[in-house]
Simulated assay, not measured.
Amino acid sequence: MLNFNGELIAPDTFKVTSENRAFKYGDSIFETIKVQNNKVVFFEDHYFRLMASMRMLRMKIPMEFTLEFLEQEILKTVAIQENSTSFRVRLTVFRKDGGLYTPKTNDIDYLIEVKENTYQTKSVYRLDLFKDFYNYSGLLSTIKTNNRILNTVASVFADENDLDNCVLLNERKGVVEVTNGNIFVIKDTIIKTPALTEGCIKGVVRKKIIETLEKHPEYTVEETVISPFEIQKADEVFITNAIVGIQPVTHYRKKSFKTEIGEKLQKNLQVLQFSS
């Protein structure tokens, strides 16, 4: 079942028109959210990122769009699912039909989709660069719009080359992120992740990992510019997103990595999920 503007409907009854702006212009944003044991994980962070994204795109935020309202709509949709305690939720917000580049209205519709979360962290995880096209730096790249063609093409490239993921670069050849999350690079006691000014998504789990690392004086965390060469020289690399949490990378080209720090942080993150 889907939740469209608060109404639960069967997936095969949901239709978009030829005037749908998410379809025609990518005039849409989304949040991918984990629900575990009937708890919406890190929802406050997802909610405030959604609100900031809607304001940036000049969408009209409905009065009822409170944190509590959207959380209950998500749980209402999860409640009719069966045979699982872990779910992957996509909350999509798009401007109502009509207009060309200039919309007829800034009012929005929303859609909540729920699927069982079957992801398991992989013991072997291979990564390489995607260099055909760039993820351009700038604030617009930090929000999750429906325009994910770069991520799609890079994912096809990964599949064709027996990789698990690809590193995306910006126009300055700096590391931005991977196709489905943020990236962290560890060398000695320094843990780096691309700064938001590099064009990476303002990831919820990225934020949680940075906050966790700042409480551990044995590590120095830096939001900075990262060159692809630094991945090659790293001791460890891991990626983050809301569903995976942390996925350690084991191979990058001919380089093999340790995974101890990533695995330790994953355990800390699991504790945070249920204490927040």
Rank of each mutant, 00 (worst) to 15 (best):
K264W: 13
K207W: 01
V271A: 11
I149F: 13
I246W: 01
L139S: 10
L163P: 01
K104N: 15
V221R: 00
F48W: 06
K187S: 15
S123W: 05
V221Y: 06
N241I: 01
N151V: 01
L140F: 09
E211R: 08
M63L: 09
Q36H: 11
N37I: 02
D162V: 05
A22V: 04
E260Q: 14
S84D: 06
G203S: 03
K207S: 14
L168W: 00
T66Y: 02
K60V: 11
I210Q: 00
N182F: 04
S137G: 12
E198S: 15
Q266Y: 15
G203V: 04
F69M: 05
L269N: 11
E116V: 14
L8C: 02
I80G: 10
Y47G: 09
K34C: 08
N3H: 02
E223C: 07
A195F: 06
Y252E: 03
F133R: 04
T224P: 01
V78M: 12
D162C: 10
K258M: 05
P194S: 07
D45Y: 05
N180M: 09
Q81A: 14
N146Y: 04
F42C: 00
L140D: 10
I80F: 05
D109V: 05
E260L: 07
D109T: 03
E171F: 06
M51F: 03
M51N: 03
T32N: 09
R172K: 14
A22M: 14
Q232M: 14
V153I: 15
T197A: 12
S28E: 09
V78H: 10
G245Y: 11
S123R: 13
G181K: 06
I246C: 01
G181N: 03
P11N: 03
T145S: 15
K122Q: 14
Y110M: 02
K208P: 07
T13L: 11
G26K: 04
V40W: 06
